[in-house]
């Protein structure tokens, strides 16, 4: 499927939820910010929140060093 992730158009395997997409991209579910079409998705909802063709996503890992 075609998605825009962090400003880049990407073709990724067919996924139906945020959780499945994160797993596909091998991104940890902890301390990551996910926005789908401008809305923030709470971590508790990753497993149910739908990802659809042509969605625009931001996936940002929390950077914790100081």
């Amino acid at each position: 499927m075609q998605l825009t992730i962090n400003g880049e158009e990407r073709r990724v395997a067919e996924v139906d939820t945020v959780a499945a997409l994160l797993d596909h991209l091998r991104v940890s579910h902890q301390a990551v910010a996910v926005m789908v079409n401008g809305a923030i998705v709470a971590r508790e909802r990753y497993a149910e929140y739908p990802v659809k063709e042509r969605d625009v996503l931001e996936i940002v890992r929390f950077v914790g060093g100081g």
Binding site: A31, I40, G65
Partner: peptide, 18 residues
Amino acid sequence: CLFGSVAEVAEDCAVTGV
């Protein structure tokens, strides 16, 4: 709102470098 709780995040410059 952005990241949820970050309490459990253990990142270390000793491992990752900076």
